[in-house]
């Protein structure tokens, strides 16, 4: 045996010992799980098609929602971060990734963003087609994703911390609750620290905090996590050949029941700019006049 191999063996030994400590459970058994190696990751990445972030949405005349017809749509920006992070976990090679599956519930056009996600590096996609008026509330989405995570044997779900249309910021936490999994929301850093242990730095009021958990878990992404790549043309072509499975809500035992009834949607009160001043003295006197100084 060469010295390199000895060292490598020693290294692996260390890893095993480390693992046995890591896997100490509230109810330790007499047989620590020495044989347990790290699980290959099966990542589920939910994505949503929303009005493009650069478009200013307009409330419709009937005051029932915002105008969507003829408006540019794209992938929710936080979901791009989720797709990117999944692909980076695979590229980082610290932990084996068996599957990156993107899923979206929405109209036929939702397939566009599923293709985009596959062009960025996801392996396959599931499109849960919804009809007009069948849009889901966060609780409904969480129930759908629970069924999908179980069916696809996912052990990690990475999703955006919020979608920029409804701004509810609920789905990830709800999903973790329904599955009984660990959750780390508003992640700005995700590290695999050996075995099934994941360390997540998350953005909180006033700074960041770091949590440690074991798979399976749910992570929601925040802006500083990464910078999503642009899909290259060859990858866009390749994505056209990747599998896209079509499903319905019924396939997951979900109905589009509504718990929240939208009474009306209105424009916010307009804010009128008050014109400009010539110089710093003008600024100071105007602010005094407005009672702000």
């Amino acid at each position: 045996m060469k010295i390199g191999e000895v060292l490598r063996e020693a290294g692996e030994c260390q890893l095993v010992v480390h693992l046995s400590i890591e896997s100490t459970h509230p109810h330790p058994t007499l047989f620590p799980r020495y044989h347990k190696t790290m699980s290959a990751l099966r990542i589920l990445v939910p994505v949503k098609r929303v009005i493009d972030y650069a478009v200013k949405p307009r409330v419709n005349k009937a005051q029932t929602g915002v105008e969507t017809a003829g408006v540019k749509h794209s992938m929710n920006p936080f979901d791009e971060l989720s797709v990117e992070e999944s692909v980076r976990i695979r590229e980082g090679k610290k932990t084996p990734v068996e599957d990156i599956c993107v899923i979206s519930a929405g109209p036929t056009k939702a397939q566009d963003i599923l293709r985009t996600a596959m062009a960025m590096g996801a392996d396959r996609a599931i499109h849960v087609e919804t009809k007009e008026g069948e849009d889901l509330e966060p609780l409904g989405v969480a129930k759908l994703l629970k069924a999908a995570a179980e069916q696809n044997k996912s052990n990690l779900v990475i999703l955006g911390k919020q979608s920029i249309d409804d701004d509810a910021g609920q789905t990830g936490q709800m999903l973790a609750g329904l599955l009984g999994w660990a959750q780390a929301t508003q992640a700005s850093k995700v590290e695999f620290t050996g075995g099934d242990s994941v360390q997540v730095t998350r953005e909180v009021d006033g700074g960041v905090e770091t949590l440690k958990a074991k798979l399976p878990m749910v992570i929601t992404t925040d802006l500083r996590l990464n910078e999503p790549r642009y899909a290259s043309l060859p990858n866009i072509m390749k994505a056209k050949k990747k599998p896209l499975e079509k499903k319905t809500l019924a396939d997951y035992g979900i109905t589009a029941e509504k718990r929240l009834k939208t009474i009306k949607v209105t424009e916010p009160p307009p804010r009128q700019g008050g014109g400009k001043v010539e110089d710093v003295d003008g600024l100071v006197s105007k602010l005094k006049e407005l009672g702000a100084l």
Partner: peptide, 16 residues
């Protein structure tokens, strides 16, 4: 509650 980054304001009724 505000939606779409405050570009629209929704009034919602909860049945829960």
């Amino acid at each position: 509650r505000p939606i779409y980054a405050g570009n629209a304001i929704a009034t919602v009724e909860s049945t829960d």
